[in-house]
């Protein structure tokens, strides 16, 4: 009886796991097939004659927006966006979270509530005025412009993570630092920041995932040719014209998804810890 139950348990879990993995396996298998196998063979069939041709084409020579140099250009764009946006938003979120955690006036709790509500605002609501602002700053269609927009949209989430962590730090530690003569910044730098490394790692992993996966902001704010890989991928696979090379599309999809998947596997539990806090951010 017990053995049967356990068997059923593992069976259900394994079926569920296969169901989740199935689309990913299809993606991988399709990307390794030559085109005639894709059009004439079955979706379920494994590649008879595995080849990396589709990958090569997706990376180096597929035509996207009239530019036939493959996904590599856009992939590089994504990194150029992610890295400054990531560190900028972490720095801003950490210092803001720290200042809010001191709760030195009632305004700081008010600001925190205002930020928290900001997590739920759909980007469509503030998108157009944001375009106007970025244009007025002379940054529309440029990399710094898009980085700025990511900074704004990531602020609430990163601040939330850091603020809640810093609130959990014993108050005696801050008092002790004050007695030792450490001011606002010295306390942050020497005492709190080293302590917050685990949270910073969570923020890093999650923000990397969010910014890399962003589509809407990249679509709207990046100038032509500067869009992130998600936008390019959608252009490539979503174009309704001409014969679709599904194997190339799938290879491109794998390539676009690879960095965040890698980060996911490398980060382990960090992702799980942050995901609930950041789930509101879509």
């Amino acid at each position: 009886m017990n053995a049967m139950r356990r068997g059923a348990l593992y069976l259900m879990l394994t079926v569920a796991a296969l169901a989740v993995l199935f689309p990913l396996l299809v993606m991988l298998s399709t990307s390794l097939k030559p085109l005639d196998e894709v059009t004439n063979g079955s979706l379920f069939a494994l590649p008879q004659d595995p080849t990396l041709d589709a990958w090569r084409k997706a990376w180096g020579s597929a035509c996207i927006s009239g530019q036939c140099s493959g996904l590599s250009v856009w992939f590089a764009n994504s990194f150029a966006i992610v890295i400054p946006a990531l560190f900028g938003s972490l720095a801003l979120g950490a210092i803001t979270g720290y200042a809010l955690s001191l709760r030195s006036s009632r305004w700081s709790d008010l600001l925190f509530a205002a930020l928290l509500i900001g997590l739920f605002i759909p980007p469509q609501v503030t998108l157009y005025p944001m375009i106007v602002l970025v244009r007025e700053m002379g940054l529309f269609g440029s990399l710094p412009g898009l980085v700025f927009v990511h900074l704004v949209w990531g602020l609430a989430f990163v601040t939330l993570l850091f603020r809640n962590f810093f609130l959990s730090v014993p108050r005696d530690l801050l008092k002790s630092a004050r007695v030792d003569g450490a001011g606002f910044l010295a306390t942050f730098w020497y005492v709190l920041l080293p302590l917050s490394l685990p949270v910073a790692a969570v923020a890093l992993v999650l923000q990397f995932t969010y910014i890399w996966n962003d589509f809407l902001l990249g679509l709207t704010f990046a100038g032509p040719g500067r869009q992130p890989v998600t936008v390019a991928l959608n252009t490539l696979a979503g174009s309704q014209f001409g014969a679709q090379e599904h194997n190339v599309n799938m290879a491109a999809t794998v390539i676009a998804a690879l960095p965040t998947i890698l980060v996911y596997f490398l980060s382990g539990r960090l992702f799980v810890r942050g995901i609930a806090a950041g789930a509101v951010k879509g």
């Binding site: 990913l24 589509f215 991928l233 999809t253 676009a256 965040t260 992702f271 799980v272």
Partner: peptide, 15 residues
């Protein structure tokens, strides 16, 4: 089970 969470909605959509 959490693997798809790490991927973009665009990736999901295209798959």
């Amino acid at each position: 089970f959490m693997l798809p969470l790490s991927m973009s909605f665009v990736v999901t959509g295209i798959i």
